[in-house]
Design a protein around this nucleic acid. Structure first.
Lengths: 331, 331
DNA sequence: TTGTAGGCGTTATCAA
DNA sequence: TTGATAACGCCTACAA
């Protein structure tokens, strides 16, 4: 059995409250007894029980980061940013893998609701069923949303302007003298970010070209990307440039183009998403619509810590702007 | 303020113990009062405080998975396996990003030692300084090691036979009629797994060819892999096949070879590590020395749950065997 | 079947 | 400067 504060008090021959004060650097303890107690604490390897501390202080100093997808190559950077901010404020960060499942999300939010964590940052992706969130929201404000929009709720949110991603992509591919017909290749079309990108892209391309745009959906894996190319080139007048939102799929598409003996970007142009290591390992390196994820993550963490320290809160929704980072898959 | 068990008792006009029994399906409550209490619990949205429960029961039903590297493309599978086993037994899993840092590792082990988690599985990679572990180990047995060997300690461990990986790799590349000189390209040479692979590879290649083997170390990133190729080909008699342990680097190497106008596997053969999505996106697809990570992870989780449920424990070290999975980068 | 009371390990409030 | 003592919210003998 581990040594407790009570044990320490007994050994030192003082009251528990004195030990507590000494260990927590609170005033009202003579230097003499404090030193004595600290010495004993080290000697007996005393480790305060965090459950008891949490219960007494109504605070665990742990925040959770709920992630829908562990394979997303941009998340390590996002996680590091959150950890940086949190650690600086004395919080530990744990990661929870929701795998995009409403049930798993609910299970982790349950831990929040039941005081295991002080707060959570929920990272978007698949929408996870607002009712769980609503339930968790009812009386506390200890959640921040990152790249997820839940219309029913008013939580502090940090999100990229996905619509603008679509607009930027269309303009980049279409707004030049020698622009060529472009297609849009989406992942899971039900996701918020994809519907937004689609709208932005379609609207901008209509404005620029006046003609309709082909859209392919459900292209998520590398293999999906590989396959879609052959569906595309059998058209009479195939599009010659692609805005493909999933980078793994972009790799597959790139591979398919090259295996068909075509050149990138001379024959086909490619535009992907987010400057992460996947975009970097593409050859040629992907041109991407980049998101300021690091900044967003830091700010989300700051938002959460603010929620936890203060009481007031006008849930703020902050929108971030994407930008193009040129690689070698576009002209 | 959330409603507590005490509140519920007051509302129902019964004792706290009765409420507790009713909610926990314990015997000794009339069906009538039980139903009444359950109804109230729902009505008032009662959520037991986990800190209090944990304190009373000395158990949180949470295990932590300490990961040294969030970019490792094999980890999502590993994590899913652990979660599967744990969830089936009523445990929740949280992920902790140690980033290979002894300090961060220590911080998370501190949470374990201080009752925030019931147990941890520590996934190898960079060795993290045995003294932290020793400290945490002293009186409890609630840790399991996965692909990490700490000689000073005797903890239940599940690890791949890295030495055999080296042997298999050498045999696969060298043990044929038309075998060609091979080189070994390692990542962080200080890591346990790399030293083992090196020994196995060198020993086997000495046995098979009788000649010395070139070794390159510190080749971790995609760019490292790209660069190392040019260091290699300027040799008079460059090796013609490579066992390269880091898959990101393997991608770079592959790229460099192709950019030099050479063919894979005709001119150069490549052997990587682990069948994961990185190996899959290589083109041609990488031949790899594969590790039964999924099985190892499940077993590690089972080990931990056993530790937590029983008291007895002969810390068992279980070694798993790698095998070659043929891709298209070898003949 | 139910209630009382003590304990889990801290922190915090009040007297002394 | 110190020490009782009551929280914090739940569980669990033991007694009624």
């Amino acid at each position: 059995m581990a040594v407790t504060l009570k044990d320490l008090a007994r050994i030192a021959g003082v009251a528990e409250s004195t030990v507590s004060r000494a260990l927590n650097d609170k005033p009202g303890v003579s230097e003499e007894t404090r030193e004595e107690i600290l010495k004993l604490a080290v000697e007996y390897n005393y480790q305060p029980n965090r459950l008891a501390q949490g219960l007494a202080k109504q605070k665990t100093s742990i925040i959770a980061l709920l992630l829908p997808d562990l394979k997303n190559p941009s998340y390590p950077e996002l996680i590091a940013a959150v950890e940086g901010v949190a650690n600086d404020s004395g919080y530990q960060v744990v990661l929870c893998n929701t795998a995009g499942s409403p049930e798993k999300t609910a299970a982790y939010l349950d831990l929040l609701q039941r005081n295991q964590f002080d707060g959570v940052i929920i990272v978007g992706g698949t929408p996870t069923g607002g009712k769980f969130l609503q339930l968790a929201l009812e009386n506390k404000n200890n959640m921040v949303l990152l790249n997820m929009l839940l219309e029913e709720l008013l939580l502090p949110s940090h999100l990229i302007d996905y619509r603008q991603e679509g607009v930027l992509a269309a303009e980049y591919l279409l707004d030049s003298a020698d622009s060529r017909p472009a297609a849009l290749i989406l992942g899971d079309a039900r996701e918020y970010r994809e519907t937004e990108r689609r709208e932005g892209f379609l609207e901008a391309s209509r404005r620029l070209t006046g003609s309709a745009t082909e859209v392919f959906t459900g292209v998520e894996s590398r293999d999906d990307g590989y396959q879609v190319f052959f569906r595309i080139v059998e058209r009479l007048e195939p599009p010659l440039s692609f805005y493909i939102t999933e980078n793994l799929a972009a790799l597959g598409l790139l591979e398919a183009i090259k295996s068909g003996g075509y050149l990138v970007p001379e024959d086909f142009q490619l535009l992907g998403t987010g400057s992460n290591f996947i975009a970097g390992i593409a050859s040629p390196q992907l041109t991407v619509v980049d998101e300021p994820l690091r900044e967003m993550a830091s700010n989300a963490a700051t938002s959460l810590l603010q929620l936890l320290s203060e009481d007031k809160s006008e849930p703020e929704i902050r929108v971030y702007q994407p930008k193009i980072i040129a690689g070698a898959t576009t002209l």
